[in-house]
């Protein structure tokens, strides 16, 4: 890991603080462009950085070599020794000056066109497929870390950091949004890549609604809001390794998803339900979602046009 040429990146504003370190908007004084600096404080011993950190950083660098169009570039990584016990690892990422939240807020009153939603979704799922095929899960997908360039290109940010952070999580409590969390995370059951598909489903619905689908203010409230839409799952689907009992929730049945997302078309509604499936093992994968008829419809149209 190189040492930072600290003069090259000049912070201009703090954009995120939290449990694991600080995020800055900074300027790369060589190119003049903005970058995002993510600092992680890592405890060190006489052998230097922990193996887990070195491994995660190596994985991120390897991912970057694929140059995937729908994930932000990792431009630089550097380590600065702070003391005998602590090293600051700085990850320098490409910065895109617009996120999906802003993009949706800016959309005209009538909302995004169905084609625009489909294009954004295709790019989003391509990025997720890429991460998942490299065994990286994002874990915290939300409109704030889905970036959209001025040309409409989607780029995922903040992926792969969860594991670096979780090894060295300080005890500072941070407010994190629950709105995009899948049931298995809310229930504190075991989880894997399907978590990202749930979040993507919530975001898919939000692209039409332009407001979040499930706006809970606690874990239990969030689960309650989810079941009001998808219904209370059957007993046999309730995970066995959790303390929250299914009996805490009223026996609601599923309501038509179009009650909540009225502008979605039929294929879109089918795909959305496959993403908002309670059982993570039955939830559609990112790759299969890309192959869903929802995305084929438009391609057929393009073929007839050409």
């Amino acid at each position: 890991m190189a040492h930072c040429t600290s003069m090259q990146y000049e912070p201009v504003a703090e954009i995120g603080g939290g449990a694991y370190g600080t995020v800055y908007k900074a300027r790369d004084t060589e190119s003049g462009k903005f970058v995002a600096l993510k600092n992680v404080r890592v405890p060190t011993d006489q052998d230097g950085l922990p193996v887990s950190t070195v491994r995660e950083v190596a994985l991120l660098k390897r991912l970057d070599q694929f140059d995937h169009p729908n994930v932000v570039r990792l431009m630089d990584v550097c380590a600065t020794k702070r003391s005998d016990q602590e090293t600051k690892v700085t990850l320098v990422f490409e910065h895109v000056d617009q996120d999906l939240k802003t993009y949706l807020d800016k959309a005209p009153a009538a909302g995004l066109s169905p084609d625009r939603v489909k294009d954004l979704m295709r790019q989003l799922l391509s990025g997720i497929t890429f991460l998942h095929s490299n065994r990286v899960m994002h874990r915290d997908l939300k409109p704030e870390n889905i970036l959209v360039t001025s040309g409409g290109q989607v780029k995922l940010a903040d992926f792969g950091l969860a594991r670096i952070y979780s090894c060295h999580m300080a005890l500072t409590p941070v407010v994190v949004t629950l709105w995009y969390r899948p049931p298995e995370v809310l229930l504190q059951s075991s989880y894997a890549t399907p978590v990202d598909i749930w979040s993507t489903g919530c975001i898919f619905a939000e692209m039409f609604r332009r407001k979040p689908l499930f706006r809970g203010d606690s874990e239990m409230d969030q689960l309650g809001k989810i079941f009001e839409v998808i219904g209370l799952p059957p007993e046999e689907e309730w995970p066995t390794d959790v303390t929250v009992s299914r009996k805490n929730f009223p026996p609601l049945s599923a309501r038509p998803i179009t009650d909540f997302v009225p502008d979605i078309n039929e294929q879109g509604a089918q795909l959305l339900l496959k993403m908002l499936t309670f059982d993570p093992l039955k939830r559609i994968s990112a790759l299969n979602a890309l192959e869903h008829p929802y995305f084929q419809e438009e391609e057929a149209l393009i073929q007839t046009n050409s």
Binding site: P11, V12, D97, Q98, D99, K106
Partner: peptide, 18 residues
């Protein structure tokens, strides 16, 4: 200016016209 000597307009999310 903030502690980095920048104003809000200088550091704003450039895509955020609001």
């Amino acid at each position: 200016v903030n502690r980095f000597g920048r104003t809000a307009l200088q550091v704003m999310m450039m895509g955020s016209s609001p």
